[in-house]
């Protein structure tokens, strides 16, 4: 009896490591993105593309070999186009615009150290195994290469989540997962560091989008391919009365005086460098040459 217990435990552990939980149905996501490409909603993509240009403008590097890693929309790649810079666009679906190749971001098809810049606009929020993806991206970067990515974060669409849950509870006595879990800003720096990135930085850009009503918001989400792709989610569409009740709750709780509703979107920005000896590093503990007391003044005599 005891022996079986012992042989089972390590096996379960290995399974947990090699197969991260499948939260997102990636094949379904590709179909959603293909549908979205027909009537795209791209204001977020353009906002993020402008930010990419701004954020890179502070770094005086040519970035001659850049990789667009899985951005659904080509806006970022178009905005970053520059003379002397080659941008390879790896798109996440067969129907994405101006693709050079199609990839699943969880399985990078790139050889080691081929790029000096990898960027990704609004794609990594749909990845099941973010640490695994970071490790693969780190390998595809040449030493001193930069990863810069924007993804949708945990404080996004909280109002929608609240209203759908409450409406479903009222009519169906329980809620099914509809709005997916997001990564928290606080976790990102640590994840980048674990993947071997130097100088990891994460920050967030809070955006409030206003809509006429819940249905206009849902139409935009569809246009971004962002409707429910949870592997464990309910595939059955929400009933009409639940949707109408959710729209009513949204209007009551999250609208401006002019009647338009607010949707919060949090864009998480993350960056990290492939390690290189030229980069700044903390000094070794105990290697200081000047005592701290000489900087602070000797307070022991007061």
């Amino acid at each position: 009896m005891r022996a079986t217990l012992f042989t089972r435990r390590p096996r379960a552990h290995i399974g947990a490591v090699t197969h991260p939980p499948q939260i997102f149905d990636r094949a379904l996501l590709r179909r959603r993105l293909a549908r979205a490409a027909r009537a795209p909603c791209d204001f977020l993509a353009h906002r993020v593309a402008e930010d990419f240009v701004y954020r890179l403008s502070g770094i005086s590097r040519p970035f001659a070999n850049a990789l667009d890693y899985g951005s659904p929309h080509p806006a970022a790649a178009q905005a970053l186009a520059a003379p002397g810079r080659k941008i390879l666009r790896a798109a996440p679906s067969l129907h994405a615009e101006s693709a050079d190749l199609v990839i699943d971001e969880e399985f990078s098809p790139f050889a080691p150290e081929k790029f000096d810049l990898v960027f990704s606009a609004l794609s990594l929020q749909w990845v099941n195994d973010l640490p695994g993806v970071f490790a693969q991206l780190r390998r595809s970067l040449a030493p001193d290469g930069l990863l810069l990515a924007a993804m949708v974060g945990g404080q996004s669409f909280v109002e929608l989540r609240h209203c759908l849950t409450q409406a479903q509870e009222e009519f169906e006595g329980g809620a099914s997962p509809r709005v997916f879990p997001f990564v928290d800003l606080r976790d990102l720096g640590g994840l980048l560091q674990r993947a071997g990135f130097a100088l990891p930085v994460a920050d967030c850009d809070a955006v409030v989008v206003r809509y006429d009503n819940l249905f206009a918001l849902l139409r935009d989400l569809r246009g971004m391919g962002a409707t429910n792709i949870l592997a464990a989610g309910a595939r059955r569409p929400l009933s009409r009365r639940v949707l109408l009740r959710a729209a009513e709750l949204y209007q009551q709780n999250f609208s401006d005086p002019d009647g338009r509703i607010r949707a919060s979107v949090e864009i998480l920005w993350l960056s990290g460098w492939a390690p290189h000896e030229s980069q700044q590093k903390p000094l070794r503990p105990g290697s200081a040459q000047i005592p701290l007391s000489s900087a602070l003044g000797d307070k022991s005599k007061i």
């Binding site: 094949a27 590709r30 790896a90 067969l94 693709a99 050079d100 190749l101 199609v102 990839i103 699943d104 399985f107 098809p109």
Partner: peptide
Amino acid sequence: IRDGIPIMLPE
């Protein structure tokens, strides 16, 4: 490879 675009999806 479709229309010159490699489809690197295992599926």
